[in-house]
Design a protein around this nucleic acid. Structure first.
Ligand SMILES: O=c1ccn([C@H]2C[C@H](O)[C@@H](COP(=O)(O)OP(=O)(O)OP(=O)(O)O)O2)c(=O)[nH]1
Ligand SMILES: [Mg+2]
Length: 834
DNA sequence: TGGCAGGAATG
DNA sequence: CATTCC
DNA sequence: GCCA
C-alpha cells in the first residue's frame, strides 16, 4: 500500500498543518494570545518542540496513520472530483434554459440518498448512464426523437411571439386598456415559466408523451375558447394561464424526451432543441401577422390552435427511450425542500437580481410591437422586428451553448457584461424611432438577451454549490423568473395605452439601470466563489496532522482531539480505523483517474484543475498530453523535463550550483550579495530546486540586474519558465538549469533580486519554509500587521477579507528585526522547517 | 460567523 | 477572472 | 471543513 502522494513535489494547494504558531494543543499558553506580548515567545518554544516530536514520531508508528492519511488525501481528490462531474452535469442543464426543470428533477432523483453524503452522486449518475448507453442511444430512433423535439420547441416559440404581435390588435378590437391585455401576456409568460417547476414531477410520473399530448390538447382548447368567447376575463385563462401551462408541457417534454434517447450527444441535442424555440419565435412573428391580416386576430388564434394540435402527432412519436428511469425510479424526491438553500445569502441576492434582470428583460421584448407601432411603423413591419429579434437569438444561442463549455469562457463575466449591455441598449432605444434603428435594436437585443438569459441558470448553479440543492435552486430561480415576468408586465401594464406609447422607453431604462446595479452586486459575490476551496483546505490540514500524529489513533475522541481534525473528519477517520477503508472511496473506483491526475499535475504549470480537465477529456498519460493537449509555454518545458524536475537533487549538488552562480554573479559586480535560500539554506539534505536571492548593498544597483545575470549565466540556463517577474524593486526569474557535468540533470532554479531595504523580508520569504511563512504571516495578520516578501507593515486595517488600509512599513533591516516586531524569538533557518 | 498568507505572471 | 507558482 |  504505497502512499499515493498526490501532492508530489509540487504544491497542490495549501496542504500542511494548522498554520499556527501558538496554542495548538493547549499546553501551558492557553491561547490567550494577541493582546499579550510575552506569550508569543512561549508559543515559539512550544512549536519547535512539537516539530521535533513530529519528526521522530514519523519514523516510529507510521503504519495505521499513514493509511488514514492516504485515505484522507484520496478524499481530498475525490471531493474535487465529484464536484467537477457535478458541474459538467450542470452544464448540460444549462443548455436547456428554462426547460431546465426537467433536468432538475432528473438530478433530484440522482441526488437523493438518505443522508447528506453528497458529492459523488454526480459521478455515480454518470457511470450509470454510461452503462446504459451501450445499447440503443444516440442513434437510429433517437434522431427521430430529436427532430420531433425540435418541432415541438418550434411550436413553443409561438407562445410569446404571437401574443406580442397580436397584442396590438387585441387592444384595438376589444377596446380594453392596454394594461389589461398586457396582463394576459404577463400571465402567459410567467405561467410558462412557473408551471415548469410543477410539471417536472408530472413528467416523471406520466412520461413526456402524455404530457406533450395533453399540452397540445390544452393549447388547442385554449385557442378555441379564445376564438369563441369575447370576454377579457376568459382570455386571462385561455390565452394566459392555461396556455402558459400548455406551452410549458411542450417546453418540458422536448428535452426530457431527448435526454431519454441521447447520452453521449446529449449536450449537442439539447442545444439543437434550444435552437428550435428560437427558430419558432422567428417564424411565428410574420406568420401570425399574416394570419391576422387575413383573418383578424381571432382567426389567427384559431388557426394557431389548429397548428398546435400537431403537438399530438409529435407526442405519438415520442416513445419512451432506453435511458428512461429504470435506475431512477426507485427513490422518491427528498421531502425537505428549500430551507437550507435560503441560508445562502449569495443565492438570495442572486434571486433578487434575477428578479430585476428579468423584470427589465421581458418588457422590451413584449413591448416592441407596441413601441414600433407608436412610432408609425406598420404592423407587418413590427412583426418583422420581432422576427429579427428571434432570429438573432437563434443564431446566438447555440453559440453561447457551445462557448459555455469552454474552459476559458467566463460565464460570470459574460453574464455581467451582457446584462449591462442589455440595459444600455434599451436605454439607447429611447432614441430609436425609425424603423432601421429599431431593426438594429431588435437585432442587438435579441443577441444580447440570448446570451445572458441562459446564463442566469448557469451562474445560479455556481452560486448554489451544494449538489443536493441545485435542483431546488434552479427551481427557485425559475420561479423568480416567472414572478418577475408577471410583476413587470403587470406594473408596466398599469400605464395607459397612450402613456405606454410614450413612456415605455423611460420605464425600461430605469429598470435596466437598477438591474445592472444588482447584477453587479450578485456578480461580486459570485466571483469569490472558487468552489469549495476551504473544505479541501481542511481535509489537507487534517491529513497532514494525522500524518504527523505520534501514535496510532485508537478512538474517535482521540482523532477529534488532533488539531485540524473536526467532527466530520474524525468520523471518517474512525470509519477507516474500524473498517480499514472508506465507503466513499471504495464505491467509485476512481483510483485510475486519481493516479492520472497526480501524474499530470507533476508537469510544471499543470495544477489540479488542468489535470482534472484533461483526465475528464480522456487525456490520462504523458503521451496523451504530448499528442492531444494544448500546452502553455511553461507546460511544454515542464513536460520536456518531466522526470528531471520531479527529482530532488542532493544538497551537495545544490552547493555546486551555488558556487557556479555565485562566481558568475560576482563577475558582474563583486559587491553583489548572493544567498542560496529555500530548502538549501534550511539545511535540507535534498533540494527540490535552488533559490537564489541577490541584492546589492548600495541600495540601487539591483535595477536591471536580473537580465544581466540571466545573460551571464548563458547556457547554464536551459529554459525560461517565467522569464521575468517585476514588482516594485524586486524581480524574480523562474527557469531550468543544468550544470556542465557528466550525467547532470536539469534542475529548477529561482533567482530573485531585491532592493537592499527589502532584503530582510525577502530573505525571510525565500528561506521559508512555505508553511513557516504562512504561520508567520498569519501571526502578523492577527497582530494587525501584514508580512510579505517586500515588507512588514503595521496598522493594517482589514475588513471582510480585503485590506482597507495597507498600513505603513516597519523598518526591517535584518531578519531578527522581523521576528522582533512580531514578538518572536529568532529562529535559525534550520528550525523554520515545519 | 469570518477567516484560512500574500503576491505575482500567465492565458 | 482563474490558475499556477514562489 | 476547522477554529477562535
Ligand atoms: O507557497 C509558497 C511556496 C514557497 N514560498 C517561499 C518559501 C520557500 O522556502 C521559498 C522557495 O520555494 P521552494 O518551492 O523552492 O521551496 P523550498 O523551501 O526551497 O523547498 P524545495 O526543496 O522544494 O525547493 O519560497 C512561499 O512563501 N510560499
Ligand atoms: Mg527551493
Amino acid at each position: 500500500m504505497k502512499l499515493l502522494t498526490p501532492s508530489t513535489s509540487k504544491q497542490v494547494e495549501p496542504a500542511f498543518l494548522p498554520p499556527d504558531f501558538n496554542a495548538s494543543s493547549g499546553e501551558g499558553s492557553l491561547s490567550l494570545s494577541e493582546s499579550d506580548n510575552d506569550i508569543p515567545e512561549k508559543k515559539w518554544k512550544i512549536s519547535p518542540e512539537k516539530w521535533i516530536c513530529a519528526k521522530s514520531s514519523k519514523v516510529k508508528h507510521s503504519n495505521l496513520n499513514s493509511i488514514i492519511t492516504e485515505k484522507l488525501e484520496l478524499l481530498i481528490l475525490l471531493q474535487r472530483m465529484s464536484k467537477d462531474s457535478m458541474t459538467e452535469e450542470n452544464n448540460d442543464c444549462i443548455k436547456n434554459l428554462e426547460l431546465e426543470t426537467k433536468q432538475v428533477s432528473t438530478d433530484t432523483k440522482c441526488v437523493y440518498c438518505d443522508d447528506e453524503e453528497h458529492g459523488e452522486h454526480g459521478s455515480k449518475k454518470n457511470t450509470k448512464c454510461i452503462n446504459l448507453s451501450e445499447d440503443s442511444t444516440d442513434s437510429g430512433y433517437a434522431w427521430v426523437i430529436l427532430v420531433s423535439a425540435f418541432f415541438l420547441e418550434v411550436l413553443t416559440g409561438c407562445s410569446l411571439t404571437s401574443f406580442g404581435i397580436m397584442m396590438v390588435d387585441i387592444i384595438d378590437s376589444t377596446e380594453q386598456r392596454a394594461s389589461n391585455i398586457a396582463f394576459i401576456g404577463a400571465l402567459l409568460s410567467s405561467f410558462l415559466g412557473l408551471s415548469g417547476v410543477l410539471l417536472g414531477p408530472i413528467v416523471h410520473r406520466f412520461g413526456c408523451r402524455v404530457v406533450v399530448f395533453s399540452g397540445s390538447l390544452i393549447l388547442a382548447l385554449c385557442c378555441l375558447t379564445t376564438f369563441l368567447v369575447r370576454n377579457v376575463i376568459v382570455y386571462y385563462f385561455s390565452m394566459g394561464i392555461v396556455s402558459g401551462v400548455g406551452y410549458s408541457c411542450y417546453q418540458l417534454g422536448a428535452p426530457v424526451a431527448v435526454s431519454h434517447w441521447f447520452q453521449k450527444k446529449k449536450a449537442f441535442s439539447l442545444s439543437v432543441i434550444m435552437t428550435g424555440i428560437s427558430v419558432g419565435s422567428m417564424l411565428w412573428g410574420p406568420i401570425t401577422r399574416l394570419l391576422i391580416n387575413k383573418y383578424s386576430w381571432r382567426g389567427a388564434v384559431l388557426i394557431i390552435g389548429g397548428l398546435q394540435l400537431h403537438g399530438c402527432l409529435i407526442a405519438a412519436i415520442l416513445k419512451p427511450g432506453p435511458l428512461l428511469s429504470k435506475s431512477l425510479l426507485e427513490k422518491k424526491r427528498s421531502s425537505r425542500f428549500n430551507k437550507e438553500i435560503l441560508k445562502n445569502k449569495r443565492f438570495i441576492i442572486y434571486c433578487f437580481s434575477n428578479f430585476t434582470l428579468l423584470y427589465g428583460h421581458v418588457v422590451p421584448f413584449m413591448m416592441l410591437p407596441i413601441k414600433a407601432e407608436s412610432n408609425g411603423i406598420s404592423k407587418m413591419n413590427a412583426a418583422v422586428l420581432v422576427a429579427i429579434m428571434g432570429a438573432c437569438s437563434t443564431t446566438v444561442r447555440p453559440l453561447v451553448g457551445y462557448l459555455g463549455d469552454k474552459a476559458w469562457f467566463d460565464k460570470n463575466f459574460v453574464f455581467g457584461i451582457f446584462s449591462i449591455l442589455g440595459g444600455i441598449l434599451t436605454s439607447a432605444s429611447f432614441y430609436m424611432r425609425t424603423y432601421n434603428l429599431l431593426i438594429i435594436y431588435a437585432c442587438l437585443f435579441g443577441m444580447i438577451s440570448a446570451t445572458y438569459i441562459p446564463l442566469t441558470l448557469s451562474v445560479a448553479v455556481e452560486i448554489v454549490k451544494k449538489p443536493e440543492f441545485i435542483a431546488n435552486g434552479l427551481a427557485i430561480i425559475l420561479t423568480v423568473h416567472g414572478l418577475a415576468t408577471l410583476v413587470s408586465i403587470t406594473a408596466f401594464g398599469t400605464l395607459d395605452y397612450v402613456q405606454l406609447k410614450n413612456n415605455c422607453e423611460k420605464d425600461t431604462v430605469f429598470q435596466h439601470f437598477t438591474q445592472s446595479v444588482h447584477i453587479q452586486n450578485a456578480l461580486a459575490t459570485t466571483y469569490e466563489s472558487t468552489g469549495d476551496r476551504w473544505r479541501t483546505f481542511s481535509y489537507r490540514k487534517a491529513a497532514a496532522a494525522v500524518k504527523r500524529y505520534p501514535r496510532p489513533i485508537t478512538s474517535f475522541e482521540e482523532a477529534l482531539a488532533i488539531p485540524g481534525v473536526g467532527e466530520r473528519v474524525a468520523n471518517k477517520i474512525w470509519e477507516i480505523v474500524e473498517t480499514g477503508g472508506l465507503r466513499k472511496l471504495e464505491e467509485l473506483s476512481n483510483q485510475e483517474d486519481i493516479k492520472a491526475i497526480s501524474t499530470l499535475s507533476g508537469i510544471w504549470g499543470v495544477g489540479q484543475t488542468t489535470a482534472r480537465q484533461w483526465v475528464s477529456q480522456g487525456i490520462k498519460t504523458l503521451e496523451d498530453v504530448r499528442n492531444k493537449a494544448k500546452l502553455t509555454r511553461p507546460q511544454q518545458i515542464g513536460l520536456k523535463h518531466y522526470d528531471d524536475l520531479l527529482e530532488r537533487m542532493p544538497r551537495e549538488e545544490a552547493g555546486r550550483i551555488d558556487d557556479f552562480v555565485r562566481e558568475k554573479c560576482l563577475g558582474i559586480d563583486a559587491d553583489l550579495v548572493i544567498l542560496c535560500c529555500g530548502s538549501y539554506r534550511r539545511g535540507k539534505e535534498t533540494c527540490g530546486d535552488v533559490d537564489f536571492l541577490i541584492t546589492h548593498p548600495d541600495g540601487k544597483s539591483h535595477h536591471d540586474l536580473l537580465p544581466k545575470i540571466i545573460k551571464r549565466l548563458g547556457s547554464f540556463l536551459t529554459d525560461h519558465l517565467v522569464s521575468l517577474q517585476q514588482k516594485g524593486g524586486q524581480s524574480k526569474y523562474l527557469g531550468v538549469c543544468k550544470l556542465d557535468e557528466e550525467g547532470a540533470k536539469h534542475r529548477r532554479i529561482d533567482i530573485i533580486t531585491v532592493p537592499r531595504d527589502e532584503y530582510a523580508c525577502a530573505i525571510m520569504y525565500f528561506t521559508g519554509s512555505a508553511h513557516f511563512n504562512r504561520s508567520m504571516r498569519h501571526l502578523a495578520g492577527k497582530m494587525g500587521m501584514s508580512l510579505s516578501e517586500h515588507s512588514l507593515n503595521k496598522g493594517v486595517v482589514r475588513k471582510r477579507g480585503e485590506k482597507l488600509n495597507p498600513g505603513v512599513p516597519l523598518p526591517t533591516p535584518t531578519e531578527e528585526s522581523v521576528f522582533k516586531h512580531l514578538g518572536l524569538k529568532y529562529l535559525p533557518p534550520n528550525e523554520r522547517d515545519h
